[in-house]
Write a protein that binds this DNA or RNA. Sequence first.
DNA 1: GATGAATGAGCGTTCATTCAT
DNA 2: AATGAATGAACGCTCATTCAT
Lengths: 204, 204, 204, 204
Amino acid sequence: MPKSTFYNLPANKKDRVIEAAIDEFAAFTYYKASITRIVEKADIAKGSFYQYFEDKKDLYNYIIALIAEEKLEYLGEVINNMDSYEFFQLLRELYSSGIKFARANPKLQAIGNKLYSNIDSPIFKEVIDSQKVKSIEFFQMLLKKGIERGEVDENINIELVSHMLTILNISLGELIYEDGQINMDDMKIIEGMLYVLENGLRSS
Amino acid sequence: MPKSTFYNLPANKKDRVIEAAIDEFAAFTYYKASITRIVEKADIAKGSFYQYFEDKKDLYNYIIALIAEEKLEYLGEVINNMDSYEFFQLLRELYSSGIKFARANPKLQAIGNKLYSNIDSPIFKEVIDSQKVKSIEFFQMLLKKGIERGEVDENINIELVSHMLTILNISLGELIYEDGQINMDDMKIIEGMLYVLENGLRSS
Amino acid sequence: MPKSTFYNLPANKKDRVIEAAIDEFAAFTYYKASITRIVEKADIAKGSFYQYFEDKKDLYNYIIALIAEEKLEYLGEVINNMDSYEFFQLLRELYSSGIKFARANPKLQAIGNKLYSNIDSPIFKEVIDSQKVKSIEFFQMLLKKGIERGEVDENINIELVSHMLTILNISLGELIYEDGQINMDDMKIIEGMLYVLENGLRSS
Amino acid sequence: MPKSTFYNLPANKKDRVIEAAIDEFAAFTYYKASITRIVEKADIAKGSFYQYFEDKKDLYNYIIALIAEEKLEYLGEVINNMDSYEFFQLLRELYSSGIKFARANPKLQAIGNKLYSNIDSPIFKEVIDSQKVKSIEFFQMLLKKGIERGEVDENINIELVSHMLTILNISLGELIYEDGQINMDDMKIIEGMLYVLENGLRSS
DNA sequence: GATGAATGAGCGTTCATTCAT
DNA sequence: AATGAATGAACGCTCATTCAT
């Protein structure tokens, strides 16, 4: 967690640090990212950095949390009105929000895509897994509701399918992220995926 | 490519080098992996290493090739008899072989899981993408055959579904790779996934 | 160019670095000169060195520039009053200043003598050649003036003679540089050389 | 000195070693020259090299001696008939032979030009200086004879002028060696230099 | 005598972090 | 709180030389 000194910073300087960090982590994986470049870009002293953050990891975790927060804002509306959506419609909205987020925040998406690069240290694994676990649990909950409502096939393996939905969700971000990966407009991607999932999961 | 000196090495020493390298690349991403640790573990001189390999990248590529080779042995049988399987049966076999490989070679699987970490450098991106592309093209081919035979729903978006199948395939390796990810026996995982995919993809 | 951090260093430390570098480059050619020895001698951390200089070449160029500067101070007076000297008197002064510099700065002279060692790398070739070319052009200019004034024989091959004067000038530094080369006092050396050149070049 | 094993080598292999060494020392200074490259080029085993030569220096000295020998062959004719030449005619012949040698053996000349790069170690200084000293002593002898015969001005400083003649002789090799140095045909260079020297040295 | 693998000290360079001011 | 110089362990890599066969 950043130190109190960081939160007390004038907005301008604080933002410079955040922007520099985002640029750096979007361009390099954690280990290749350089504090030196970040402080240069943010135009703060090297020593100051260590008065704001414990260390490199501290900054990284802070930025990851920022991304999660930002992403939640995209999903927030959907999630808040969760119960008014039919299961597959909700899935469509969630995936769609994810793509919108990636389109609107390509750098943040780039950092997200690099997440798995940093599984080296157990500490990161924890951070990352907890993210994934949250997503999986969320889908499990949705699936259960969907089954209760008779929308989702009750014969599916809930635990596994929640994994699948999570992975496919994550893959969407990567899919659209860079050149050549796939050449389709966003709606086609979502509809194509939903077509399979709906056939695969809907109760008959 | 390793130099001829490496191939001429006594099996014992050669194996020590390979094992040390696998351990290292399983524990660290490419950039964090340390030649120093590898030679220490393998108990060879630093200079010797550079008599065997051009450089770090040379070793890494060699290990990746080793993994690919090893993995092919698991898939080989299935692929060779590709035409005698029905589409979903083939999918089942492929996923099953992937899991068997990961179970039998957890370290190699770990290295594979880290592959995406190295997308930073353009050189690696090329290697990795080509891998993925091959897999995607393979699934496209399978899907087309499946549609021709009337086994697979002709309304699916082939390009997208081949992506999905690739991603799910890769995720299987990660899924079972370490503690806590998922707690099921392999058959249950495969059947759970196939149940959804078969419902989602089979022609009605 | 050294980084600003170097120029901001306390004089004491800065001088230690310079002295260590001069000692090293006086004792070894560029490629054999060792940063490790330099930082040990200067008693600074290896990392500090790279806060002061971009790399080894940066330091080397800085030292070369220092020598050029130092040498110019010896020649400056003469060059500034160029037009008030007769050609051969000017030549005498130039050679004399060169010898004085070498006597006063034997280590810098030693580095200068090694300059030609580094012609291997194109980068150095450029630096070194430009030095020589400057000297040659300077002598060409002097010769032309001398001919105009009727002091110098108009039948000489200007291009070639400017080469000769440059080479003899450089050789003076080497001549007196170390033990055994020649055992004469400086005036005798200059007068001996001038005697020949004056007879050889003066218009009759 | 090379070991007897080297001299006992079949001519073919011996020549391959010599040629590879000449190529290497022509392309790189002593310290940058690589034994590894030499043995590769000569197609002999690394270990064999050390059965032929004590070390790198041993080989280098051998090659230098070879060059001296080769060069002497060019001068030999002139030197043998020394007494039948007038002083300045002899000088002309000597310089002319030097240029011919350089033109005929550009690689050997390149090695010669690099000689001064290797003054680092006292051992080399000795080797090189002894070469120079020989040349200087030779010119001293010539000058004395020239004075006796009344061809050379008796007022010159013999010791110094012998240095000058040596340096100018060496410089001739460098002068013609590479692009851009000077753009004249060989006779023009020699005549231009001799014109000055003759005027400068001839007894009046 | 021939081989070529083995050696290890040494190289220049990087970087997150600490510390004195 | 801010600064930025200082640190030193670690990095990948090179190379002449040795040594076992």
